[in-house]
Design a protein around this nucleic acid. Structure first.
Length: 191
DNA sequence: AGTGTGATTATCT
DNA sequence: GATAATCACACTT
């Protein structure tokens, strides 16, 4: 509801573009993110603290992982001050290291650009799951963390994908790197 | 290239 | 008991 909080949230989403997701044997550059904030009906934390959402009320830089649609894990990064729920969904990345193992985990991917071009695909290829919940991503912890990368030259924005709640707002809270569009999830434009 | 639908389970009402 | 921040596949154009 407060403008400064929204600005902080959206800045966090843009700042994650270009950062590297690092795991032993794996490295990928983030090219697509989506913001979820307080006072946001599309955010899981909108209705308050639950066992699943509690990490979003903790400090910035933690992993919020959850399982959905009976099939898929999602990977988010918390981004607002303690007590204020906010998280950025990591929707797509470019593989840098670990292609071979990623392909084994995603045998249906036809090309390298299909390995990580969606939030569920990304978690499948990197095997991100409940074991990473609330992990501190701001330091090299030997498991899963983030490192500074190359900031994209141009950032494009759009409305969020796949929501049941909060899509009426048509918030332009989806961000991606213009020069990496082949690696971004579809659809690129969302009516 | 676009539309529609089934899969399958943790989470919350 | 209903729902879901998705994916893959089967269609149609």
């Amino acid at each position: 509801m407060t403008h400064s909080t929204d600005a902080e949230l959206l800045q966090a989403a843009k700042d994650l573009l270009g950062q590297h997701i690092v795991m032993p044997g794996f490295r990928a550059r983030i090219v697509e993110t989506e913001a979820y904030g307080p006072a946001d009906p599309g955010c899981h934390a909108y209705r308050g603290v639950t066992p699943r959402t509690q990490v979003m009320f903790d400090k910035p830089g933690l992993a919020y992982t959850y399982f959905t649609y009976g099939n898929h894990w999602m990977f988010c990064v918390t981004c607002l001050k303690p007590g204020t729920a906010g998280a950025i969904l990591i929707r797509a990345a470019v593989p840098i290291e670990g292609h071979e193992e990623m392909r084994k985990r995603r045998p249906k991917a036809k090309k390298d650009q299909d390995l990580l071009n969606g939030p569920g695909k990304l978690c499948a290829a990197l095997q991100i799951n409940q074991s990473h919940y609330a992990l501190d991503l701001t330091q090299s912890n030997g498991t899963l963390w983030l490192e500074t990368g190359e900031r994209p030259r141009k950032i494009r924005t759009g409305t969020r994908i796949g929501l049941a709640q909060g899509k009426g707002d048509l918030l332009p809270w989806r961000f991606w790197s213009a020069e990496d569009e082949p690696h971004v999830s579809r659809p690129l434009t969302n009516p």
